[in-house]
Design a binder for these strands. Structure first.
Lengths: 336, 336
DNA sequence: TTCCAGTCTGCAAACCTTTGCAGAAGGCTA
DNA sequence: TAGCCTTCTGCAAAGGTTTGCAGACTGGAA
C-alpha cells in the first residue's frame, strides 16, 4: 500500500539512493562525468534516467552563480527585422544550454535601463538590439554582467554589427556602374544608429561617382509608408531608389506600378535589409542580404566568451549583394 | 582604509543589518509588507534602496517554488503574426513580475516536447502558440506545470483562440451581400490547426448564399507566394479573394495589378490576419483585425489563474471587421 | 496589580545542489 | 611486505531567501 506521499519531482538525493552512491557522487556523475569511475557514472545516469530526474536550476544557480539565462532586449517586435536575430540567438542559446529571455523595451531607454537592472542577478548576460539609448548608461544598467550590443557600437563594450553601410555602398556601386546618377534614399526610422551610417556610405559613394542622393524620410518601416513616399520619389527626379528595408521597398514598388512607373525600365529599386528569410521580399529584387540569424548567434557566442573572461570585441558581419531584376540602366529620359 | 573585499551584490542580511532588524523581518518587510510595523518597514525599504538591493531570484525560487518565468513556445518567428502575440505576452508577464522565455521550436513537435520537459522546473508555466503536435503529448510534456494553448483547442487544457473563423464568415457575408458568388480562398501553411476551420466557416457561409469557394494552396505566408497564386486565382473565375493573411494578400494584389486586373473593380480582395499592427498591411484594405496582442496578454493572465488553482478555461477573442476599399460589387463580366 | 489578547520580531530550519577536503581503496614499485 | 601514488567517493558546508513557531513587548481590561 502506498504511503500517501504527495507527488514531487525527484531530487538528486533520490537518484543517489537509487544508484547506491552519495549525493556528491551523483552530482559529479551528472555534471562532471570525468570525475567519477565509468561504472559508477553509468549507474547514476541510469538511475537518473529511470527516475526522470531533472536538475533544479535555482539550487544549482545558487551555488554556481550561473543562471542559464540570457536576456535579449529588443526595442520592438513591430520591426520584422528583429525576428531572425531573435531566432538565431535562441538557437545559439539553446545549444549552449541556456534560455533566452526576451524583453521588449518599447524603445524606451528608461524602461530598458530599469528592466536590465531588475534582471541583473537573474541572467548571465545581456544582448541589446539596435538600442538608441546612451551606451554608458546601458553598460551601467548591465552592472557586472556582460553586455553585447547588436547593430550598434560603443567604446569598451562588445558589439556585433552587420556591415549594412558597406551594403549600401555596394548597391551604389552597382547602380552607378549601370549609369545612374540621381538617387533617392528611403531612410529608416528616426533614432536609428545605423541609418545615418548607411546613408553616409551611400552618399559618399554616389558623390564620388558624380551623382547626388535625395534623402526621403525618416519613414516608419511599413508597407504603407513605402507607398506614401512614391510621389516624393518621382518628383525628386531620381532614377534609382535605395530603401532601408524590403517592406518599404515593396510598398514603393506597388505604388510606382499603379502610377505607371515601370520597374526597372523607368526606375531601379534596391534595398538593404532584405527580409526574404521571413517572406517579406519581392521575387528577383536586387538587394543586400543581411545575415540576421548569424548576428544573433554571434552575439550569444560573444556573450559566453565575455562570461569566460574574454575581452570585449567589435565584430562585423559582411553582407551579401544579390543581383535581381529590379535594377537596370536608367531610361534616356527620367519619368514624368 | 578599505578592507580589500571583493565587490559583491548586497544580500538580504546586509539590508537587515543596515536597518537594524533580523533577516526574517527584512524579508517580510519587502515581500509581505503588511506583516511588519509601518515604521520598521520604512526603515527596511530605505536600507534596501540605499544599498541598491535586489532579491536573488534563485534563492527565493528554491523556497517558494515560484520561478518568475513563463515559457512561450512558438513554432517559428518567420511568421510575423506571432510577433504581436509575443509582445502582448511579454508586457503582461512583466506586469506580473515575470520574465518571458521565448522558445522557437521550428515546428518540430519532438523539439517542443523535449524543450518543455527540459524547462519543466525552470518556469512557472507554458504557453504554446499554434502548435501542431498532439495535445495530449503536449500536456504530458508540461508535466505538473500549467499550460495554455493559443489559437488551438484541446480538451481539458486552457486555451485562448481568436475567432478568425468568425472573421472569415464576416468577410463572406460582406462580400456575398455585395453580390459575389465565386470565391477563392488562399489558404495558410500546411498543418495549421486554424486554417481548415477558417476555410470551413467561409465555405459554409458562401454555400449558404448559393456561392462556391475554390481553395488555393496551402501557401507559405510570404509576399512571393501571394503573387505566385495570382494566375490560379484568375483562372478560377473568382470575383472575390479571401487570403489567410495580409502579406499574402499584398503579394497577390501586386501581381494582379501588373496583370491588369483592377482592385476592387475587377476583383475584390480581403484577408483575415491583418498584420497592420506591424506595418504589413495595405492602406484601406478590407480585413479582419485580429487582436493578437490581447491574445498574448490573455494567455499570460490565464496562466496565472491556472497557477492559482483555477480551472482550465476555453477563452475566445472576437475579431473586428474593417471595411476598406479593396472590396466592391463584382463587375458584370468576370475578368478574362 | 495581574492577566490576556494582540501585534510585531527573531531564531533556525528548510529548499537542492555543488565543491573543498580528506579518507578509502587499489595498484604499483622497491 | 611496506610504502607511495592514483583514482575514486563521501562528509559537510555553503549559497540567499522564506516561513513556522515561539518569544517579547504593548496596551487594555478586570
Amino acid at each position: 500500500m502506498d504511503k500517501n506521499e504527495v507527488e514531487t519531482s525527484p531530487r538528486l538525493a533520490d537518484v543517489a539512493k537509487a544508484a547506491g552512491v552519495s549525493v556528491a557522487t551523483a552530482s559529479r556523475a551528472l555534471s562532471r562525468p570525468d570525475m567519477v569511475a565509468a561504472e559508477t557514472r553509468q549507474r547514476v545516469e541510469q538511475a537518473a534516467e529511470g527516475l526522470d530526474f531533472r536538475h533544479h536550476p535555482s539550487a544549482r544557480a545558487l551555488i554556481t552563480g550561473r543562471m542559464g539565462l540570457i536576456a535579449l532586449c529588443v526595442p520592438t517586435l513591430a520591426n520584422p527585422f528583429f525576428a531572425p536575430i531573435i531566432s538565431g540567438a535562441q538557437r545559439a542559446a539553446e545549444e549552449a544550454g541556456s534560455g533566452l529571455l526576451v524583453v521588449v523595451t518599447e524603445a524606451s531607454i528608461e524602461r530598458e535601463r530599469r528592466t536590465m537592472s531588475r534582471l541583473q542577478n537573474q541572467v548571465d548576460g545581456f544582448i541589446a538590439l539596435a538600442t538608441s539609448g546612451d551606451s554608458a548608461e546601458l553598460a551601467a544598467a548591465a552592472g557586472p554582467k556582460p553586455l553585447v550590443l547588436v547593430n550598434r557600437r560603443a567604446p569598451g563594450v562588445s558589439s556585433v554589427v552587420v556591415d549594412t553601410p558597406d551594403g549600401a555602398a555596394q548597391l551604389a556601386d552597382h547602380l552607378c556602374s549601370l549609369g545612374h546618377r540621381k538617387f533617392a534614399y528611403l531612410s529608416g526610422p528616426p533614432g536609428s544608429w545605423m541609418d545615418p551610417r548607411r546613408q553616409r556610405a551611400l552618399t559618399d559613394r554616389v558623390e564620388t561617382a558624380g551623382g547626388v542622393v535625395t534623402p526621403i524620410g525618416p519613414l516608419p518601416l511599413t508597407y504603407a509608408s513605402g507607398g506614401g513616399a512614391a510621389q516624393e520619389v518621382v518628383s525628386s527626379g531620381a532614377t534609382a531608389v535605395i530603401a532601408y528595408n524590403s517592406v518599404v521597398l515593396i510598398g514603393l514598388h506597388h505604388a510606382l506600378s499603379s502610377m505607371g512607373v515601370r520597374v526597372p525600365q523607368d526606375m531601379s529599386l534596391a534595398c538593404v535589409d532584405d527580409l526574404g528569410s521571413i517572406g517579406l521580399s519581392m521575387p528577383q529584387m536586387t538587394a543586400v542580404h543581411v545575415p540576421a540569424e548569424d548576428a544573433g548567434e554571434l552575439a550569444v557566442e560573444e556573450l559566453s566568451r565575455l562570461g569566460n573572461g574574454g575581452p570585449p570585441q567589435e565584430l562585423t558581419l559582411p553582407v551579401r549583394f544579390e543581383l535581381g531584376q529590379s535594377t537596370a540602366a536608367p531610361a534616356a529620359t527620367p519619368p514624368q
